[in-house]
């Protein structure tokens, strides 16, 4: 994103709507901090700039990688999927992506509202790959992993995005290993992240699952996403 300082009248509307506080006022003109900006385009959609000073630049690689991880209205070129996520458990009653005995895991870096450098992905993936997780092949993050050791493409590491979701699944008995990784990375990382666990409710009920995870030292929120089983192949 770019603000034409010759045109900007300093009204500050764009500063208010920026989700990552990347716009600052200097000498009555709004400026975008290029390193901080995640290219989400909320400013151009929501600031209603009275003098049309906000412009969407044509971005070159690797900066262009910021767009699909930040702008909700775009589709990732490699995955063909809108935004930074996948269908995951939302269509599990049709796809059987997660079967009984498996746990799906989503670690979303940068959320809520802090953003993340893509290099943070590697803090997790180098440890997860040792455990032998199965990455979701349609996830935009999976396309960034370049080897079996969980390293990611060097040239995109310093790019900053609104959020990046590491999606994978494991046999349920490996859950304690994954939770250990979460505790380890929590002490190393320079951003926030959220964690979600997906379980098919076959041979287990929700409270049993919550009890199991609580016994492993993690709190489970009272609210969740529930696929109610009305989908058919």
């Amino acid at each position: 994103m770019e603000i034409n300082s010759d045109v900007c009248n300093g009204c500050g509307q764009c500063i208010l709507v920026c989700p990552v506080q990347a716009i600052k006022m200097i000498d009555n003109k709004a400026y975008i901090d290029e390193d901080c900006c995640v290219e989400c385009a909320v400013c151009i959609r929501e600031a209603k700039c009275p003098v049309n000073a906000i412009m969407m630049k044509r971005l070159q690689w690797p900066r262009s990688i910021r767009i699909p991880f930040s702008n909700v209205l775009t589709t990732h070129k490699l995955t063909g999927i809108g935004g930074r996520g996948t269908e995951e458990m939302k269509t599990n009653d049709v796809t059987n992506r997660y079967n009984a005995g498996e746990i799906g895991i989503a670690i979303e870096l940068g959320r809520p509202g802090v953003g993340t450098k893509l290099r943070n992905i590697e803090l997790f993936t180098t440890k997860l790959s040792v455990i032998g997780v199965i990455y979701e092949e349609k996830s935009p993050v999976t396309t960034l992993i370049i080897d079996g050791e969980g390293h990611i493409n060097e040239e995109i590491k310093e790019e900053r995005v609104l959020s990046a979701i590491i999606e994978f699944k494991i046999p349920s008995e490996k859950l304690p290993l994954i939770l250990n990784v979460i505790r380890t990375v929590e002490n190393e990382i320079d951003t926030v992240f959220t964690v979600g666990l997906v379980s098919r409710m076959q041979g287990i009920n929700p409270s049993e699952f919550v009890y199991h995870v609580t016994n492993l030292g993690f709190q489970v929120r009272p609210n969740a996403k529930i696929n109610i089983g009305l989908g058919k192949p």
Binding site: E88, M89, N92, D93, Y98, G104, A106, R111, P112, G113, V114, I182, E186, N187, E188, I189, D190, T191, V192, F193, T194, V195, G196, L197, V198, S199, R200, M201, P206, F209, V210, V213, F218, Q219, V220, R221, N223, A224, K225, I226, N227, I228, G229, L230
Partner: peptide, 27 residues
């Protein structure tokens, strides 16, 4: 769901938010 004679097929549980040591305070 029980009342409607349905049962959860798959649940996505939240473990909440984790914050690294260098993160400035959240809102």
């Amino acid at each position: 769901l029980k009342e409607l004679e349905l049962y959860p097929h798959t649940i996505h549980f939240s473990l909440g938010t984790f914050s690294g040591p260098k993160v400035q305070s959240l809102p």
